Amino acid sequence: MDALKSAGRALIRSPSLAKQSWGGGGRHRKLPENWTDTRETLLEGMLFSLKYLGMTLVEQPKGEELSAAAIKRIVATAKASGKKLQKVTLKVSPRGIILTDNLTNQLIENVSIYRISYCTADKMHDKVFAYIAQSQHNQSLECHAFLCTKRKMAQAVTLTVAQAFKVAFEFWQVSKEEKEKRDKASQEGGDVLGARQDCTPPLKSLVATGNLLDLEETAKAPLSTVSANTTNMDEVPRPQALSGSSVVWELDDGLDEAFSRLAQSRTNPQVLDTGLTAQDMHYAQCLSPVDWDKPDSSGTEQDDLFSF
């Protein structure tokens, strides 16, 4: 819950932080000083300027060897085509990944977070970031790969997607708890209302004896509580940590079903599988986004697919 609360507080303090972009060759504004600060901008989305290598189908939802083989196929196909790589912007948030063309600003792909089953910074092609997700059109699994400016960037994108998945799962947990509370309150309110109706004398007997209905007592009954809980029953509950912020979080049926399955089948359902080692994760978390744009010590960066 700490990640969720800190993310909400950060967004309320400075929503404009989320509009910064990394990996864009110096076009961005001043960047936060450390990885923790940038992680807090996830709610509205972190932007990464990358190059799209392509996509291939895979048979399993996750796995280092599986993704490595898929990336190898994608890279080989991209090299064989001889075409310049498409420059894209990857927007990562707890909602998922939005992929747009840098030149036309046209939407290429919009992947809900619950469809993503794996992401990684490839070991062999260490400047490549990739994720595996279920197609929104059918049940097939797709591996999408992107060329980053350097290994640090690939690791940073991988960690960002993993963190977005974690925050999304926490949102789901909060929403589920809130819905259970509202359902319980609604049920209790309905029981109270039913009890009051059972003990209320029939209207005919009131008229016969000349008694008047006590409207004041009726007004004191917990009807307002019942209506408050039943009027918006169809509205999706939102985490309290975000009250007053500009973010509107809505959970669709697909996300609810997917996270429910994860909660039942996995020990740590909030953790998205990645190909990063503990050492890689520690190294990337210690980086400032400013470091992502620094040239690798191995030599001059080449803006070309064939540089790796």
Rank of each mutant, 00 (worst) to 15 (best):
K5H: 06
S16C: 03
Q20A: 05
G23P: 11
H28A: 15
K30L: 14
K30A: 14
E33A: 14
W35K: 10
D37K: 09
T38V: 10
L43Y: 13
G45M: 15
M46E: 08
L47V: 07
F48V: 09
V58L: 13
K62A: 11
G63V: 13
E64W: 12
E65S: 14
A68L: 03
A69Y: 14
A69C: 04
A76N: 10
A76S: 13
A76W: 09
T77L: 10
S81A: 08
K83Q: 09
L85P: 11
L85I: 03
Q86P: 09
Q86G: 10
T89E: 15
S93G: 13
L99Y: 04
L99I: 14
T100A: 14
T104S: 15
Q106Y: 06
L107A: 04
E109I: 02
S112K: 00
I113N: 00
Y114E: 04
Y114H: 06
R115N: 05
I116M: 15
Y118I: 04
D122Y: 11
K123R: 10
V128N: 13
Y131F: 09
I132C: 11
A133F: 02
S135R: 15
S135K: 10
Q136A: 05
N138H: 15
N138D: 14
Q139E: 12
S140M: 13
S140E: 13
E142S: 01
E142N: 11
A145W: 08
K150C: 03
K152W: 06
A154Q: 06
A164C: 06
K166W: 02
W172C: 01
Q173D: 03
S175G: 01
E177C: 02
K179R: 11
K181M: 12
R182N: 05
S186H: 01
D191K: 02
G194P: 05
P202G: 11
L203R: 04
K204M: 09
S205T: 15
A208F: 03
A208Y: 00
T209E: 04
G210F: 03
N211Q: 08
N211C: 09
E216P: 02
T218I: 04
T218D: 03
A221L: 01
A228S: 13
M233Y: 07
Q240K: 11
G244D: 15
G244S: 13
G244M: 03
W249T: 11
W249A: 14
D253T: 13
D256C: 08
L262M: 00
A263P: 01
Q264S: 00
T267I: 03
P269L: 03
L272V: 07
D273S: 06
G275A: 02
A278Y: 08
Q279S: 01
M281F: 05
M281W: 01
Y283R: 07
Y283I: 00
A284L: 00
Q285L: 11
C286I: 07
C286F: 11
C286Q: 07
P289K: 07
P289T: 07
D291Y: 00
D291A: 00
D291F: 01
S297N: 08
S297W: 00
S298G: 00
T300I: 07
E301Q: 02
D304W: 12
F306A: 00
S307G: 10
